[in-house]
Design a protein around this nucleic acid. Structure first.
Lengths: 137, 137
DNA sequence: CCGTATCCTGTCCGATACTG
DNA sequence: CAGTATCGGACAGGATACGG
């Protein structure tokens, strides 16, 4: 996927696609709201990095997620077509999750955000300290 | 910002930066969790597209946000160094918000996600219908 | 092992009213 | 205009127990 090149306008406006239809825009915002969930992001990253995984391993790799939230988030992602759930009829049961093409494409779209977070971690931390200092003094 | 080129590995792993230190990884996940909030995303987009804005106009442009959430989200973003709040000492009071360089860089990182959402809106919708159909039948 | 069901607590978030 | 304060309903999300 190639991003539209930023033009030299006063405020870097045109990096975003202009969806003129306000109804479409509302839908996009709504979709963003669902898909930009913390756990969804992390699961996308884990599955991208480690490939297909079974339920419990996925939970370990994600870290700090309850079984309930893991199930819930995985269901929503499955419903949205981001991943496929495969049940192997063996004992003990074995369920594996893997990204679809759609899921992988979303993961790639989020890639820049992960890089941003890793890169600017300390800068954000400093900003917070400065803010808190000003608020306190 | 240029993304690292995806290498031809089995599952497109290496698009993500590998932060080996688990403590750093935890911090990154935490930061993602805060920054990937729905309202934060939309405010980033609005300020990127329309430039510096005052409080109420911002609320209108965002759409569907309560005054409380707007204030709250703006404060957090200011604390994180994503935007600057300028108070003009006039009557009636006039407060303007504009992105910092940091905020703009985050906005750019999210750009790909907006494009993804706009592009795959219908695909997600179809996936949901198919899923619901299977669940019902 | 992979869930679902239940309970319970905290937090989100809108509505409303009030200040400078 | 741009907030702050407070209330209250809804829901997120953890802990636990149980079922297939």
């Amino acid at each position: 996927m190639s991003l539209p090149s930023a033009v030299a306008s006063p405020a870097a406006h045109d990096a975003y696609p202009d969806d003129l239809d306000p109804r479409v825009e509302a839908l996009v915002k709504d979709l963003i709201g669902k898909v930009a969930d913390k756990w969804t992001l992390i699961i996308l990253e884990v599955l991208t990095e480690h490939g297909e995984q079974r339920f419990s391993r996925l939970g370990d790799l994600v870290g700090g997620i309850s079984q309930k939230m893991l199930t819930q988030t995985l269901r929503q992602m499955e419903r949205d077509g981001l991943l496929i759930r495969t049940i192997h009829p063996v004992i003990p049961p074995r369920v594996e999750y893997r990204l679809t093409e759609l899921g992988l494409s979303l993961s790639e779209a989020f890639c820049g955000v992960w890089i941003w977070a890793a890169k600017h971690l300390e800068e954000v931390d400093r900003a917070r300290q400065a803010f808190d200092e000003r608020a306190k003094g």
